[in-house]
Design a protein around this nucleic acid. Structure first.
Lengths: 228, 228
DNA sequence: ACCCACTAAAGTGTTGGCAATCTTCAATCG
DNA sequence: CGATTGAAGATTGCCAACACTTTAGTGGGT
């Protein structure tokens, strides 16, 4: 019997049902900024608020720790981590390198259907950029990159990418959001697609990695701008 | 007061004390092959054997799940994962790319002390290779690569590398162990060091990545040999 | 006013138990 | 004889309570 729950009852394929829901909820709270950086996560309070016991909350907190979203100190509990700029830059480096690898693989192994799908995304971004729709561009951009990693057919690489971009999105202060420079960014996307289409793996890799680094630079610039 | 425990009482900096110990013990059991691939982890039995309750055992199992060492199924518990050859190859690809990145960074940023330390390791491996001491070579080799990642100064990249090589070491069947080809492998190490010393980041990257791929090939060959 | 010991409150770490679910295996039916 | 069903046994998911640690607050001494 399904006892009443304050949580969205997602069956989820993951281990414990409740813990997975709590984990999702905690993640959402961090994303919404309800839980600011450095803030303590009170197990009992959160458990009561969600209508569950402390067990699932603990499990969720430990899961977030493994994801690098919180730090847990012995006998003191879990604290929302703050993403240092250094670490963000390091993650940009990591994902840039991986993006290069992925593009190189796609250059030699992409299917026609996959190519069309990617190019459709580039087209969509083009339209969004010209219409000035930042959110549409942003979402499509995220999907575009995820698709590239998915198509490359290396599950560990894809998992690492997803984990780290999520970390960036969740822990970065909203105001640090990368200013898209949509047209230029999408121009780089076209470059990547052309390189992949040409079948030149080394070229595709260089172009894609440069795109990742350019994102890193745009991030740095956004921070510098914000500081002034 | 420290009640008697069947576990090695490692304080560990990690969250819960007991859970961390259990996690280490579980990992060791997998490494020793006591827990074979596909085998079920009985929470109660393991808890009793270690002299703790089920809570810490659950927590440790979930931690291993996040590390990719076990799979946990709802209402059925945790099972030791088997590393598929596909996945092992994918991890080799991943670490090869990261090793290339790391070598490239070291080419422009390595300190004199770090360089000496790395070269000392290469020398040690040389001696071990000529003496035919496979275990010494193996251990030094692991330390050598870890040092490179440590010196590169990108914590996320280092963490990804450590996590995935551990996965390889723990889940790979002992018989799949990569045949070292010590002399050739260490020759590649020298190549990497020379490239780093030259300051040519692109060259260092290429050489290092090729070394990673060569390891992948040696792994494949070892499997093929074993099948025959 | 400042510092230190002491105490109480809050919060985490751990435990054992209950309900729900899955597995096993024998009896039953086609 | 093979497939099915259903009850017993085993095991997990979840919870409430206990034990220990940390922290905040209080009072006495200097």
């Amino acid at each position: 019997m399904a006892q009443r729950r304050l949580l969205a009852t997602k069956p989820e394929s993951d281990g414990a049902a409740l813990a997975a829901s709590v984990e999702a909820e905690l993640e959402a709270m961090i994303a919404r900024g309800e839980l600011g950086p450095g803030q303590h996560i009170n197990e009992l309070a959160l458990a009561r608020r969600l209508g569950v016991s402390r067990g699932p909350v603990r499990e969720a907190a430990r899961a977030l720790e493994r994801m690098g979203l919180v730090t847990v100190i012995l006998n003191r509990g879990a604290f929302v981590r703050e993403l240092q700029i250094d670490e963000a830059l390091a993650i940009y480096d990591l994902t840039a390198v991986l993006l290069g690898y992925v593009a190189g693989r796609l250059a030699t192994s992409i299917s026609a259907a996959q190519l069309l799908e990617l190019q459709a995304h580039v087209g969509e971004m083009e339209a969004a950029a010209q219409a000035g729709q930042q959110d549409v561009f942003f979402d499509t951009n995220v999907r575009f990159h995820k698709l590239m990693f998915s198509y490359a057919g290396n599950a560990p690489v894809e998992a690492v990418y997803l984990a780290h971009t999520r970390k960036l999105l969740l822990l970065r202060r909203r105001s640090f959001d990368e200013s898209p420079h949509m047209l230029q960014s999408n121009g780089e996307h076209r470059e990547i697609m052309d390189a992949i289409l040409s079948g030149d793996a080394e070229l595709a890799r260089q172009v894609a990695e440069r795109h990742g680094r350019a994102g890193r630079t745009r991030f740095l610039r956004a921070i510098a701008y914000r500081e002034a």
